[in-house]
Design a binder for these strands. Structure first.
Lengths: 257, 257
DNA sequence: CAACCCGGTTGGGCATGGCGCAACGACTCT
DNA sequence: AGAGTCGTTGCGCCATGCCCAACCGGGTTG
């Protein structure tokens, strides 16, 4: 509708970790706009401190004010604040990297984490996205959505076999989700990355609906499936219960909206 | 310049931790716009997934895509990635909450942290802002800017006495900065909040300029000034040196730009 | 040393985007 | 049942912001 707004945000979104800075020409090329147009938008964003301009190198980079935006968003979710201490405790109990994420369409978005250093290849941080279908938290979150909705959002997703164990068919995914609903937790065994196994549990808020998920990741070389289920799973479920309580969940399960 | 862009961002910025959701009328009131105008902008942002709209409650809240924006910005700084492990180590060595921040005008902006739970009253998180003049990291960062620039940015700041010990005059601040430059570290003793004492050290990158600061906070009730300086300060300075190295600093100090 | 080229910045003129206003429909509260 | 509130939509006018094109400055090349 408001085109100029869309364009402006396109500018901010043009930066990513591969292209942390852009020159004006690069920006114009990337967006497909006229140079003058790109200049106006860049200047406006600089004026508003959402973009910074280095006069020496003539390059733009996102301003710190953008960070602020992101975090007011995080805090408006109100999830991470109250659960961080429990996440911390879970990390200490398990020693593995622990994460918390919410579902957004067919992706999961990380909202909190606690880890020494990343044992996985993929660098994760709050705001990062991963496909839901091949992650433990993603499956847990999908498992608590109506199947019709799952099918609808998965329609736009190419189920890539990241590893030989990745679920690549809707049928297989459906079976996984069914099991997760029954078990109350979900596991992905090297579906995203070989050598990494994760278990995840749902988090509920005051409404009783599942609003987020928490997980623990382990290296297959160090923790067997048996150990994972006998030792770490109870700790995960305990933490999840306390986190749900912190979010106002009173104990009455309500089937997902 | 591009008014519609400014307006759109105003919408996103209208949300904060006190007002995590807004109805259309509230938004219109808060921005001072016509309802129709507010509606157009809100709809556009929803369309772009930067805003979410709950049809049941008829309220808007920032979308998860905003988080993404913020974090590409963080990673484009490239500070937190490489220094996080060292920050982690410093946390374990000192036991106190440790933070990392950069300077933005007269504010400091937190870019990384490691803490069990907040011992300070004020809830901090990446993206949060605090005034530079009454924080240890802020003073360290100001100390490495030209005095003219400091005076210029401080012109717009009311130096509020948050506690009886807060520096409230430019002269006092100047003296503090002078001492910090000489000592190579900075301390604030209960200047922002009674009962909390912090020390901070500058971080340099490959260019030799000071680009960020790292600090350790302690409770006055538990750690004396002597202990802080004899025990924690060497650990802080050691971590700062390693963090600077991780950022590419080769050891040659260059006076701030 | 001059000619050129490329990236950034600025001006003008036209079209359309977007703003204010006002009416409308749905819902709630009294 | 009426009145008030809130969200949504249509209309018409105005100015915003887009395209194009010229201009400028710096670096490079013949």
């Amino acid at each position: 509708m408001v085109r100029s707004l869309a364009r402006g945000l396109e500018v901010l979104a043009a930066f990513d970790r591969d292209t942390p800075t852009l020159s004006l020409s690069e920006l114009a090329a990337r967006t497909g706009w006229n140079k003058g147009t790109a200049y106006r938008f860049a200047s406006t964003l600089v004026e508003l401190s959402y973009l910074e301009h280095d006069p020496a190198t003539k390059r733009y980079r996102p301003g710190l004010k953008v960070l602020e935006l992101g975090f007011t968003c995080l805090s408006s979710l109100g999830l991470a604040d109250r659960t961080q201490p429990i996440l911390e405790q879970l990390f200490r109990e398990t020693g593995g990297p622990v994460h918390m994420a919410v579902l957004d369409g067919s992706d999961i978005v990380y909202v909190a984490r606690r880890a020494d250093r990343s044992l996985t290849q993929i660098q994760l941080y709050a705001g990062a996205r991963l496909p839901a279908y091949c992650t433990s938290m993603g499956k847990v979150l999908l498992a608590h959505r109506p199947w019709d909705e799952v099918r609808a959002v998965m329609r736009g997703v190419r189920m890539q076999p990241h590893t030989p164990r990745t679920a690549t068919t809707l049928a297989r995914l459906g079976a996984d989700l069914e099991r997760i609903r029954h078990d109350g937790y979900g596991m992905t065994d090297q579906e995203l990355e070989l050598g990494v196994r994760s278990i995840a549990a749902p988090l509920r808020d005051a409404t009783g609906g599942v609003v987020a998920a928490v997980n623990v990741s382990t290296l297959t070389a160090r923790v067997s499936v048996d150990q994972l289920l006998s030792d770490l799973l109870p700790k995960l479920l305990g933490a999840a219960a306390r986190m749900s309580a912190a979010l106002g969940y009173a104990g009455k399960e309500v089937r997902a909206v």
